[in-house]
């Protein structure tokens, strides 16, 4: 019996009668992480890794009914054993492990292999059936060392500062923004953040997690104070009038899509840094090679191509259609502000 079926509402677990990251309203939703394409509005009950809960409430409203569990703790839903395991994607992001009558399935959600300052390190979870994202499942996506990228970001910031300019870096507000904040050299100058990012920071700090100092940009922020500063913004800020308040801004984006020159230019930013919270080609193949699951389903991204590649390698691999943003690393919330 299949532990999960693929319905038009999302992944459904028949014995447990719950969904994982459903995109239509359901009674019981197990959520891999708080990005809005995985955590939608309107479910009656949310179950997530415990660090995800405050983030879900921030994004979906404090009224939602949400239950949190730490990583590695097994709980039961109608006899199905469920546990969360680090996915290293963003704070609270989890792979969901399901076990029922000796059969084990893992849904990765989004994940990366590089350790994350807030999201920890990815944990490979042995399973019979592995449902993996493959947002960047093509061999053109091979990430450079993150430390090298942060050196580039530091150099870029310093250089702009020397010219008396403001460095504006777009990064999505949950995950990438904190990853950058915790990894750049805060000694270079002050770091400011767009309201949407700062709201996330407030919640994270309330959870007792220390973040480097940031200043919220408000209408009262003095232009002069921003000279030489680093400003973190969701990309929606980059496209709006918001950016006009800065004196002589230099813009950049940090994303896996920046791997390809054409995308760098189309972003109409001055600079693109290759920094992703998803697995790249090599990482995908490493994880799958290590787990060697009996059955693989691939979701959002270059699914058809990646499934064919896996089949060529002798795996039993298929594509599952989902409504996660896949091709667009930007979670939906960024579009609405």
């Amino acid at each position: 019996m299949a532990l999960l079926t693929f319905s038009d509402k999302g992944f459904y677990c028949p014995p447990g009668d719950f969904y994982i990251d459903p995109w239509r309203q359901v009674n019981k939703a197990v959520i891999t992480h708080a990005h809005s394409d995985h955590a939608r509005y309107g479910h009656r009950q949310y179950i997530a890794q415990q660090d995800s809960v405050p983030l879900l409430k921030l994004r979906l409203g404090s009224f939602i009914q949400a239950t949190g569990y730490p990583y590695g703790t097994t709980f039961s839903i109608r006899g199905v054993k469920v546990s969360f395991h680090p996915a290293a994607h963003v704070l609270g992001a989890a792979q969901v492990r399901l076990e029922y009558k000796g059969e084990v399935w893992v849904v990765t959600g989004d994940y990366k292999l590089a350790p994350d300052p807030l999201a920890g390190s990815f944990e490979p979870v042995p399973c019979h059936t592995f449902i993996t994202e493959c947002t960047f499942g093509l061999p053109i996506y091979q990430w450079p060392e993150p430390t090298q990228v942060f050196t580039e970001i530091n150099d870029w910031w310093r250089e702009n500062q020397e010219e008396g300019r403001t460095s504006i870096l777009s990064a999505y507000s949950l995950g990438k923004a904190q990853r950058i904040l915790c990894s750049v050299d805060a000694g270079i100058g002050p770091i400011y953040a767009h309201g949407a990012i700062e709201n996330t920071h407030d919640v994270i700090r309330q959870m007792g997690i220390a973040l480097p100092k940031t200043e919220r940009i408000t209408d009262k922020t003095n232009k002069k104070d921003l000279t030489g500063a680093l400003v973190l913004t969701p990309s929606s800020g980059m496209a709006s009038n918001w950016i006009r308040r800065f004196a002589d801004p230099v813009t950049a984006a940090a994303s896996g899509w920046m791997m390809v020159r054409g995308n760098r230019r189309r972003q109409s930013v001055d600079r693109g840094f290759v920094l992703s919270d998803h697995v790249d080609w090599n990482a995908l193949n490493t994880v799958i090679g290590e787990l060697h699951p009996e059955k693989i389903y691939v979701t959002h991204g270059f699914t058809d191509l990646f499934a064919r590649w896996l089949q060529d390698q002798g795996y039993d691999a298929d594509v599952v259609r989902t409504e996660y943003s896949g091709e667009n690393e930007e979670p939906l919330e960024e579009v609405t502000g």
């Binding site: 093509l138 053109i140 390809v260 590649w309």
Partner: peptide, 11 residues
């Protein structure tokens, strides 16, 4: 797979 990658990059 190379051809598909090339399609995606365009160069």
């Amino acid at each position: 797979l190379f051809e598909a990658s090339y399609d995606m990059v365009g160069d």
